[in-house]
Amino acid sequence: MNIFRLAGDMTHLISVLVLLLKIYATKSCSGISLKTQELYAIVFVTRYLDLFTDFISLYNTVMKLVFIGSSLAIVWCMRYHRVVRRSYDRELDTFRYWILLGVSFILALVLHEKFTLQEVFWAFSIYLEAVAILPQLVLLQRSGNVDNLAGQYVFFLGAYRAFYILNWIYRYLTEQRFTRWISCVSGLVQTALYADFFYYYFISWKNNAKLQLPA
């Protein structure tokens, strides 16, 4: 464990807590993409298949349970909570995410560390996480008003992967055997997607204008 990875995990945790806070405090999920939340639930479930077989540390196990639990709770809330579900932008959240699922799965069948069920699903979850934010970015662009909690959610989500890139650089420099190419390349693609969002988010913040993401 290094400071970059700890900072990344904490930032990731904050992004989930911000989202839970927004939904519980405002009893609304306007501006939040259910599709991105469902993709994240799939990411965590397929990535943590080793939850009960490999014990890394108490921290690792607790964080896995928190991420799986919170992502499923958010999806449940947005789908079934009688008050929250009414504020879901159903007609705006129309990203065809089956494409993301299909491409990630095919890529995982081709590119993985070992051809075992657990490793293929692990690679699938890494590729899927890189693109899981797309429905949310499209929804932000369409809904125009960057509800500040939704914007902050995306901000922390992007910052967490940026910290992980520093972590991979640190591990590459300090460990003789670096085998995290799948995570590293996928993480770079993911952060590049956020960098784009951050640029337009910063511009809109500076001009105090509405967020205008390019079509």
Partner: peptide, 10 residues
Amino acid sequence: SKDEDTHDEL
């Protein structure tokens, strides 16, 4: 070794 194969990152 075992620990190198398992994914210790979240």
